[in-house]
């Protein structure tokens, strides 16, 4: 489970994560390793620490204790816990992609500009960024929607724009927080398909918080949280069978 089939170390290696908010303990000694190319669903009741764990793994918020190592192919390991706020912001925009329930798209910009913005912040010239954004949108079936403003897109289309933005930079790890939570079941299913194809299908890792067991079941691995502790960690039956066969 720690290494992927090519023997690459876990892309994210979290050990002893602890985080509290006042008297509430959100993370209580979490150890979690995520392989490159793996999709992981984080489940649990409200207040169990799912989003806090996702934010810690992504370097959005630092845990009070513990360590998180990022191991990307061809790059030196990075100790996320040891980075200052500015460096973590840079890390997120260069190496991570995000798809949140609300989409977090900039309403004034067009679909194409929203995707291009992720590249422009990384220093890519506008014309090149717009061209890449156009290709990314086309791959997700949004040809013809490039110049539409966010308010002119449906919920499912908005989430596809968010997925395009998350993967246009070539991020190797994509974090998703209830990405289908605001969508009807059919649209949610299509968006999830797209998300899995763009991430795991392209050899990237996907870390997803979800309440929905049907969504979680599409992932390679499911971890359950309760009161800030991991209570279960299971592979999808098809992967478990593969894992058993390999052993």
């Amino acid at each position: 489970m720690l290494e992927n089939s090519l023997g690459h170390p876990p892309v994210l290696d979290a050990r002893g994560l602890y985080r509290s908010f006042g008297s509430t303990t959100a993370l209580n000694g979490i150890d979690l390793q995520i392989a490159l190319g793996q999709s992981l669903a984080i489940m649990g009741p409200s207040g169990s620490g799912k989003s806090t764990l996702l934010h810690a793994l992504a370097g959005i918020e630092l845990p009070d204790a513990g360590s998180i190592m990022l191991n990307l192919p061809g790059r030196a390991p990075v100790d996320i816990q040891g980075l200052k706020d500015k460096a973590r912001t840079k890390l997120r925009r260069e190496y991570f992609g995000f798809v949140f329930q609300s989409g977090l798209l900039i309403p004034e910009l067009t679909a194409e500009e929203n995707v291009a913005m992720a590249l422009m912040i990384n220093g890519v010239p506008r014309n090149a960024a717009i061209a890449s954004a156009g290709s990314a949108l086309a791959e997700l079936g949004l040809t013809g929607m490039e110049q539409r403003r966010i308010g002119q897109l449906s919920g499912g289309q908005q989430q596809r724009v968010a997925i395009a933005r998350a993967q246009v930079t070539g991020a190797m790890v994509v974090f998703a927080d209830e990405p289908t939570g605001a969508l009807d079941s059919t649209t949610g299913f299509e968006v999830l398909d797209t998300l899995l194809r763009c991430t795991v299908g392209a050899g990237k890792s996907l870390v997803m918080v979800t309440h929905d067991p049907n969504v979680a079941a599409r992932c390679d691995r499911i971890v359950q949280l309760q009161d800030g502790q991991l209570t279960s960690d299971s592979l999808h039956p098809s992967n478990a069978a593969k894992d058993g066969a390999q052993q």
């Binding site: 992504a58 840079k90 890390l91 991570f96 977090l104 900039i106 912040i121």
Partner: peptide
């Protein structure tokens, strides 16, 4: 506020 906070999480610096 939610958009600004969210964009910062995504990696867009507040300075931008």
């Amino acid at each position: 506020a939610p958009l600004y906070r969210g964009l910062n999480r995504l990696g867009m610096p507040y300075t931008t």
